[in-house]
Amino acid sequence: MEMRKLLVVHDPNREEQPALEIAARIAGDIGARILLFGCIHSEVSGAEYENEEVKRLLREHKARLDALLEPVAAMGVEVSSEVDWDKDWHHAIVRAAARDFADIVFKTSLRNPRRRVLKFTGDSILIRECLCPVLLIKRAEQRETSTILAAIDIKAKNPNYQKLNQHVIEFSRRVVATLQADVHIVNAFPDFRLVPDRAEIVEQTGVPSDHVHIKLGAPDKVIVDVAKNIDASLVVVGNSHRSGLAALLHGNTAEKILGKLQCNVLAMP
């Protein structure tokens, strides 16, 4: 997982921008560049003035984004901004990420799980449709030692699930190698005929055995329980059921855990 181009979604409804704060720290550490992306739309009356009014609003919003980027640029980070005029802001983000060949999307996520009663939210669309990983940020504070929980299914037979596993495992191994965080692995299993092999997980991920959590139960419930028990600052999960009937009926694990956690979630496609 290379991170050279970071697309950060601007939240127009709040002064603080946790997504930009975290992206700036990471970009400063690894030499990545940041594109701060905004999407606005409002009703503009008077057809003869519409084009000029839209242009004015876009200029004003871009100036707001550029002001937010000034302290980031002062850190030596390469920055740029872009604003789209579109009612469909979540799909505008998906298109912007593809257009910019973004390696990862950073977005501040809703804190209130009650606002996720209808599961198909803007965050859900990003998780399902972005071609790159999506980091949904709920907390921006910097810890002395971060704790990462990576969710895998070591016994997966489906090629798509095996690919997701590999993405999550590769990410975990890189973090372990850099000693930048305390990495834990969680593997849920549905019944005792499918108990994962702890030694295999240790070998593949590079984490110590006492950091491997193998538990019976539904993946979303197990992940949430373990994340809370170890006070995880980030949960990394493969993004299954991105499309089709399974996505419509069941959603995916990343969507299911979002409203139940107060830590950041990285969804890997």
Rank of each mutant, 00 (worst) to 15 (best):
V8S: 08
V9N: 00
P12E: 01
L20G: 05
G28W: 00
A32F: 10
L36V: 12
C39M: 03
C39N: 10
H41Q: 08
S42W: 09
E43T: 12
N51Q: 13
V54A: 10
L58K: 13
E60I: 00
H61M: 11
L65E: 04
L65P: 05
E82P: 00
E82I: 02
D88C: 09
V94D: 10
A97L: 06
R99A: 14
K107W: 03
L110A: 07
N112L: 00
R114Q: 10
V117C: 01
I127L: 15
L131E: 15
C132V: 13
I137C: 09
R139E: 14
E141N: 04
T145E: 08
S146A: 15
A150Q: 02
K155G: 10
N158W: 06
Q166M: 13
I169W: 02
E170M: 03
R173M: 07
D182G: 08
N187Q: 09
P196Y: 05
R198D: 05
E200M: 09
G206I: 04
V207L: 05
S209H: 06
H213Q: 10
V222L: 12
V222R: 04
S233W: 00
S233E: 08
S240D: 11
S243I: 06
S243E: 08
A246E: 09
A246I: 06
T253C: 07
A254Q: 12
L258T: 06
L258D: 04
K260R: 10
N264A: 10
M268P: 02
P269M: 14
P269L: 06
